[in-house]
């Protein structure tokens, strides 16, 4: 009897993980298929297209040639990638520098004020990017409110416009991304144990040194992820640089569009896109390696 019970228990223990594996596999099938169809297959097609032979009239024929990739080894491509990266890093730096203290102060407010801020931030996300970019265009144009006000106080020459230029592109991108970054930092900061900051205060730390020496280092992982989010988004920005910038301020996304639609060179556009993806993957791997090394040092 005892032996039989033990045997039943043992077989129960043995089958449970097996069943769990099946359940897990079932749950992962749908998202797995989605990722396969919507990401892996298009990526494969993009790589295939980038290696294809370009035909006239915007067509291509299957092949395996590196002609388009050779075209990337030019100072122009390096400049475009360099600018896109610089814009992305500048955007990330400004967004994180503004979002982190903003999210910190929101988490230190009373509950009702916090809710009001969160509703406001979420509400601002509901505005379309197109609407925001054209609103910026109006605001910064010669007849716009901001340019008009600056002209009135003598800071801007009459008839001058605040766009198209790099600051206009950067300002608009920061405006678009700031709510996302604040909302990204909010959960981690609101879960920060207040006693940790109070402990720093009892040891003589001012609010500023508590923020810089305790809060910021504790948020290191989130800050890194926040920077990556902004970099990835900004790298692929299309509408903002197109509307508010000059050609030198155009990002790689605009050049991909120009290659595909303007020049009708789909393999070149695909080669551009593959390079961007490869660059982003390299950036993510590098960040991962660096953060792991930092963690193991700690």
């Amino acid at each position: 009897m005892r032996a039989a019970e033990l045997s039943v228990q043992a077989s129960g223990v043995a089958t449970a993980p097996g069943r769990e594996r099946w359940v897990l596999a079932g749950l992962l099938t749908a998202p797995g298929l989605y990722i396969l169809i919507m990401a892996v297959v298009p990526a494969f097609l993009m790589v295939q297209l980038s290696l294809a032979h370009r035909e006239v009239a915007g067509l291509w024929s299957p092949g395996f040639e590196l002609t388009q990739y050779r075209q990337l080894a030019t100072p122009l491509f390096a400049r475009i990638m360099g600018f896109s990266l610089m814009l992305a890093l500048a955007g990330a730096l400004i967004c994180v520098s503004l979002a982190l203290p903003a999210a910190y102060f929101i988490t230190r407010m009373r509950r009702r004020a916090q809710v009001a801020w969160l509703v406001f931030l979420l509400g601002s996300l509901s505005l379309s990017e197109v609407l925001i970019v054209f609103a910026f265009q109006v605001l910064l144009s010669t007849s716009g409110t901001l340019a008009g006000a600056l002209t009135t106080v003598g800071l801007l020459a009459p008839g001058a416009s605040l766009y198209p230029n790099f600051p206009a592109v950067l300002t608009c991108l920061v405006y678009l991304l700031l709510p996302y970054v604040i909302l990204f930092f909010y959960p981690a900061l609101s879960q920060l144990d207040p006693e940790v900051e109070q402990a720093a205060a009892t040891m003589g730390a001012s609010r500023l040194s508590t923020f810089t020496r305790v809060v910021l280092p504790m948020m290191r992982g989130q800050i890194l992820t926040g920077v990556l989010l902004v970099v990835i988004f900004t790298f692929g920005a299309y509408l903002t640089p197109l509307v508010l910038g000059r050609p030198p301020q155009w990002t790689i996304a605009i050049h991909i569009n120009n290659a595909a639609m303007g020049a009708g060179n789909l393999p070149l556009a695909a080669a551009y896109a593959v390079s961007v993806v490869a660059f982003m993957v390299a950036l993510l791997v590098l960040t991962r390696v660096l953060s792991r090394r930092k963690a193991s040092e700690a």
């Binding site: 940790v196 109070q198 040891m203 003589g204 730390a205 504790m218």
Partner: peptide, 19 residues
């Protein structure tokens, strides 16, 4: 302020700095 008094304090959660 607390940072002026600098009374040593041990908190219930200990509040050690994990980083």
């Amino acid at each position: 302020a607390a940072n002026g008094r600098q009374f040593g304090m041990v908190f219930q959660s200990l509040a050690l700095f994990p980083h």
